[in-house]
Design a protein around this nucleic acid. Structure first.
Length: 120
RNA sequence: CAGGGCGGACGCAUGGUCGCUCCGGCGUUAAGCCGGUGAGGAAAGUCCGAACACCGCAGGGCACGGUGGUUCCUAACGGGAACUCCGGGUAACCGGAGGAAAGUGCCACAGAAAAGACACCGCCGAUGGAACGACGCAGUUGUUCACAGGUAAGGUUGAAAUGGUGAGGUAAGAGCUCACCGCCUUUAUGGCGACAUAAAGGGCAGGGUAAACCCCACCGGGUGCAAAACCAAAUAGGGAAACGUUUGAGGGCGGCUCGUCCGAUGUUUCCGGGUAGGUUGCACGAGGUGCCGGGCAACCGGCAUCCCAGUUAAAUGAUCAUGGCCUGCUUUGGCAGGAACAGAAUUCGGCUUAUAGUCUGCCCUGUUUU
RNA sequence: CGGAACGUGGCGCAGUUUGGUAGCGCACUUGACUGGGGGUCAAGGGGUCGGAGGUUCAAAUCCUCUCGUUCCGA
């Protein structure tokens, strides 16, 4: 069985990391969310893999609904990393009216946005 | 059996696989491995009260804010318990609570009047007065007037009208007098107290509103774990020492070693404050469970036993299987669907609000049977 | 974590302090002026005052709880 470890080092935690991605990153607009990513040569981290940050505004729902969205997105990133941009800092910005409730729905939505690079 | 009142408990379970936080162990470090651990009754709202930390502070008063039957519980509270009075309910039970006799304000419309009844329409006009008569010496008496005066019975209103009902009394009336009820005062008894009961007396003053100002009693210093403490980059600035100071470090203009201008603002080292960042604060506590004892109860005491989340762009998840619950279809089997409100953020004690459904204790009322 | 403001016809706002009639502008409807539109004039309709409970004779207004929106400080 293949292991998909995901420690905290693959997540964006610092405010300056978020700001750098927001300022210099490329954006992909999906239904109910936006994907912002910054390529490998621009990020100053020595870490080679991708890092993920999730942003869920308060308008989406109460704390239970926001936590559930974050957990689903994090699980999708862990199990289906091939559909996300490679070697980048990624911010998954959720918008009000986020329609995706299941793990597979998130994976398909991201795969259709990023195109053939991760669709296999 | 039906309806109702007051509570209490639970709020999916078990297992496999892949993951996450923290703790312990192994590993020189790292990568990692093994074991353990991980949301609630409201974690929510942030409406009160405290602990803790920093700042302020001689003492007292004012102002401001809060609380409001009594006694008790508690670290404290606007919380809780028991009791008192009032109101609601057949009842179990539920809800409310200082002062309107210190002062001020307000009470629209309607109504005579909305609070000091010298007021208005009325009623009376006994007594006094006037006019006209009767008998007539004085004077007595009748009628009328409604002048002085008496009165607050009645007056369509209004949410609310100055004790109520009945009788006596009167010119008409009036607690003017009486009976009952209400109210007030005093005394006695019971109770820690709120208050209750009884007796005697007063003839009745004192409309409502304090979630209007206010008065009385009690309480309250401010800010909050992003508090606060410790470690501590980069940049700028501060202090000290050394070097340098018209024998000129350094800088401006200029293409330039020259010229000209400014001129100790300079360099090095050290120190202190302190930002980003990190660590502590930070989970053994007014703690949980059980038993015993005290108390009507809230609660308190003793003994035994347990350790029970600790994140910081913020972990507690995903998926599969089995079982239980509910709903629909179905002859059983079975199939399909559903499972609420809601997520720790320094920590406790309360309050309030949200909540699919399940189980359960005590009590009240009605009906039936015995 | 702490604090503040707002919610009133379809829209934007007064009225809340000091409780008794809910008003203004735009919009809407009808009619007149015009051959018609626009415009003007006249008349009219439309509001559980965010929700629930309470105080009061009476609540948009006072008190308590609650919902939503917006903003501020660390």
């Amino acid at each position: 069985m293949q292991r998909f470890g995901q420690r905290n080092s693959v997540r964006l935690r610092q405010t300056r990391d978020f700001n750098r991605v927001y300022r210099n990153g490329d954006r992909l607009y999906g239904k109910g969310f936006t994907l912002i990513y910054l390529g490998g040569e621009q990020k100053d981290s020595c870490f080679t893999g991708s890092r993920l940050g999730i942003s869920v505004p308060k308008k989406v729902g109460n704390a239970v609904q926001r936590n559930r969205i974050k957990r689903i997105i994090r699980e999708a990133f862990r199990l289906h990393r091939e559909v996300f941009p490679q070697g980048s800092d990624i911010v998954f910005a959720v918008r009000p009216g986020f329609p995706l409730t299941g793990l597979q729905a998130v994976r398909d939505a991201v795969a259709s946005m990023t195109g053939a690079e991760g669709a296999e």
